[in-house]
Design a protein around this nucleic acid. Structure first.
Lengths: 192, 192
DNA sequence: GCATTCCATTCACCTATGTTAATGGATCTT
DNA sequence: AAGATCCATTAACATAGGTGAATGGAATGC
């Protein structure tokens, strides 16, 4: 087994004997990215589902005024791609960018079809994984509705304390839906 | 076949012969709710996945100040429940309430396990359905980040023109993350 | 090693949306 | 049908967070 982090991700959700796992593993494409490299750029048609074997990536989308909005921040042990573009074949609206040196394991469409057909338990794995992401995203909306900027900041660093050191503050601000100046103001107020 | 709306929902995503569909249909529990009845109340453990065969429901969640936040509005042909509570067995944090007379088709855990085991294509159907909901929810976050209150309002009534007649305005305001007074102000400004 | 770019911070000022309160029409209750 | 409740609307005022501009330190490029 080459990628225990991936195997553990499967085992957390489904009962997966080693053999089908190894069958999958052999079909994955490994990809390494340096700091601040793009995995996905707006307009591309996405041909792979990327699993972050090690590293950290940020997903943002450009609005009509040319401003970036960070929608997702994901790291080691999670998937981050564009399911919509991957499954529909239409161009993506997202930009996904590393902020740490990152190692990815990428599954193409052919492999996805093969393993879910051969071993339906993989379909179940993806159903559960996407479900978890969906539940988290609903929670993100609730936070945007119910918490002040300061409360959202505190909630985020409570859940992911290392984030302040891992990525620039302006990305954290964007993820929280505030401006970097506001994040500075909040951090200053909290010092007292 | 008793519920063509449900069958069409399956056919839109998967290739499903009639027989396994009928097998499922016979196991569903039909439930009718009047206007303004609760399907789900905070604290309950959710035992069913509900499909809206006809009607409209709103999902909201209470914050620490006792304020409601509408997170989802769904209608005929869609599912709306709490996947988290259903699959984890933990109490739900949501409140789901009809705003039109509504007919639901409810699937319990036993049936879910049975049909996905017996016919893996159902697992695929739920994977795709949850994936669509997830993609929509990500888009909802992008709108909250990138659009003004007025733009969010215009976007919503462009997509669902009938909504203004179907549910009270204060629910639309909550879904847009603004106060009813602000929605009134926006609507007034738009008259000119 | 110097120049350049990037980024966090601060401050003064601005604005979109929230808040509070009042009004009147519509809808429910008895 | 009268009374009560709910809800949309308006207006005056309040505020969280945005905007624009300036500063200095850190990281990057040559």
């Amino acid at each position: 087994m080459e990628y225990p982090t991936l195997y553990q991700s499967f085992k957390r959700h489904i009962n997966l004997p080693l053999e089908p796992y190894l069958e999958l593993e052999s079909r994955l494409v490994r990809k390494t990215l340096d700091k601040k490299e793009f995995l996905i750029k707006e307009g591309q048609i996405i041909r792979y589902l990327p699993f972050i074997n090690k590293g950290l990536m940020v997903n943002y989308r450009l609005d009509e005024n040319g401003e970036n909005h960070v929608l997702q921040i994901r790291w080691t042990g999670l998937w981050l791609g564009d399911l919509y573009s991957f499954f529909s074949g239409k161009p993506t609206k997202f930009n996904i960018l590393t902020y740490q040196p990152t190692e990815l394991l990428m599954m193409n469409h052919e492999t996805f079809d093969f393993i879910t057909k051969e071993h339906p338990v993989f379909e179940r794995y993806f159903r559960i994984g996407i479900q978890d992401a969906y539940i988290e995203t609903l929670n993100q909306i609730f936070n945007l509705h119910s918490l002040s900027a300061e409360e959202r900041y505190l909630e985020l660093i409570k859940n992911v304390p290392s984030l302040l050191n891992d990525i620039p503050h302006y990305l954290i601000a964007s993820y929280l839906n505030i401006k970097p100046q506001s994040l500075s103001r909040i951090r200053k107020n909290l010092q007292n």
